[in-house]
Amino acid sequence: MLGIFDRIGSATLYYINEVGRMGIFLFHSLVSIIRPPYKVWPVIRQVYIIGTLSIFVILFTGAFTGMVLGLQGYHTLSKFGAEGLLGSAVALSLIRELGPVLAALMVTGRAGSAICAEIGVMRISEQIDALDCMAIDPHKYIMAPKFVAGIISLPLLTAIFDVIGILGGYLVGVGLLGANEGTYFSSMYKDVEFNDVYMGFMKSLCFGLLIIWICSSKGFFVHLTKGGGFGAEGVSRVTTNAVVLSSVSILLFDYFLTSILL
């Protein structure tokens, strides 16, 4: 009986500890972004890795999401004779919800996992200790460019996702199913407001921060992970954890952000 309490207690302490160190990690990383010197090249490199290299997957998923929205939307709206609203339905779904969320999930799978594995390997091969010993702050040197790149890349990728999705919806709704071309765009123009774009933008900004925070801190603390965090297995386990936690957090935060921003 005492064993159960013991286990619950130690698990609680472990997770409180983990949340604490991840919080301190975020604080240090954000402070290191503000602190000079400001180096542009590492940020550009990270924007390329996180953003540019994710474009293909964003284009692909964006197009098909828009296409399926066009398909479903047309069939549903035609039941009410409201095909004219297809454009605004596709655009609003993408801009407010699907764009930021799906783009963030794609970036988590593609770039977040890579960030976690990269930092995890740096930790277990003592490269992060080496930076510390050289009096080079790992937060400034490794994390700051990734955070800035995440915050820059996610809104841009989301914008690309939205535009491609709208075009995908157009292709299916107008091109294949015969909805009116003019109404598709005019309903969108009429119904999409600045607030919708703002909501999508804020979400993508927060998700960018969230992905980089969770994935890089999981890798950074791989050695403190419960159940042995060293070696290739430790890195692979922590990478899986990071992707799962990021994905769940994106959906969780999406709800809270929507309720705040609505």
Binding site: V121, M122, S125, E126, Q127, D129, A130, D132, C133, M134, A135, D137
Partner: peptide, 19 residues
């Protein structure tokens, strides 16, 4: 601590070079 570490040079067991 950072200032003290500026006086250190470390050769790690596996060299810990940035790969």
């Amino acid at each position: 601590l950072k200032e003290i570490r500026t006086n250190f040079g470390v050769l790690f067991q596996n060299a810990a070079l940035f790969d």
